[in-house]
Nucleic acid binder design. Sequence first.
DNA 1: CTTCTGACA
DNA 2: TGTCAGTA
Length: 361
Amino acid sequence: MSDKRNRDHLLTAAECAERLGLTVRALRVYEDRGLIAPRRTEKNWRLYGGAEIARLTEILALKRLGLSLTRITILLAGTTPDLGQTLTIQQSALVDLRDRVEHSLSLVGAALKKISSGQAVSISELITLAKETRMTDLSPDTVAWRRYEQARPRTEVRFEPEKHGSVVGDFQFETGDVLSITRCDGGLLAQLTGQSAIEIYPEADDLFFYRVVQAQLSFTRDERGELEGVVLHQGGYEQTAKRIDERRARAVADDLEKRVKDKIPFPNSEALLRRVIAEHQRGEPDYDAMLPALAAAAREQAPIVKAELARLGALRSVAFKGVLQEGSDVYDVRFEKGTLECGLTLAPDGKLSGIYFRPGL
DNA sequence: CTTCTGACA
DNA sequence: TGTCAGTA
């Protein structure tokens, strides 16, 4: 390497790769992608000069942010329509990644703890542990799988009144919402608190699906075959509702009706809304104050909400408007540069069960 | 001995 | 991206 001194700092592929901690293969890939265009010698050997090194340093810097080569290509081509959008996408991707890593860490940690306390953990046990926690977890890949499963076309079976009609009853979700299943001519109706009744169709015993929305209901029974609860499968999530008696269902409905009629918000509802807004402005939503399903959805939305709030500027005022049919408190929220209509619902345990923001009038 | 291209994992 | 084959 002392023959042809690289006094003019021209490096061969191997030299350049070593200097930047890359491989020659990587350099070739970047070149194929149009990220760099090194000159060539007569023998067609690649030559990397100062400009190429600088360019590669930029690429490596962007890679450290976790950006894919494709994004870097677009970014460096200078044709980025919106840098903010690119970063928002990247942020959600990283959050996803972090959640998965945390999930894995918690599993490994649990197994390790068991081992260190003297208990034996077999491989099959470990696999079982990982599988079981995946069944109910909210990790992005599980949700993606469920979304697919829930979007799958359904085939209806003939409605049999004696069999399918046995799921009639009232069920209450963790959110406090009540689902009522009733008979109608030749079928069944499902009605969620404050919403209109929608027909559901049988797919199998204790398994029904909606036609108007992509959602399914699977009913569960105890050992004696008594109806125990129902699971609503929708949007990649599963929400469980426990069976309640008619009187309780009635009470929930009456209570909601009174809240709507007399415009009674949840206790502390406005303070809670202000807190949620402040948290989202800071980019640190308190997911522990939300039901798990909402927390999962909120994690996905957080970057978008934060960007939107940043655009609107400082909070000016919060005014209660009323209670919607389905039970959410609605507020007009004024910011420096615009207004939002916000709605929120609280679960019986006081946790946030739902929240939405939409552009105000 | 090294690079380069193309193909495949 | 790693790796391998066949060249120049």
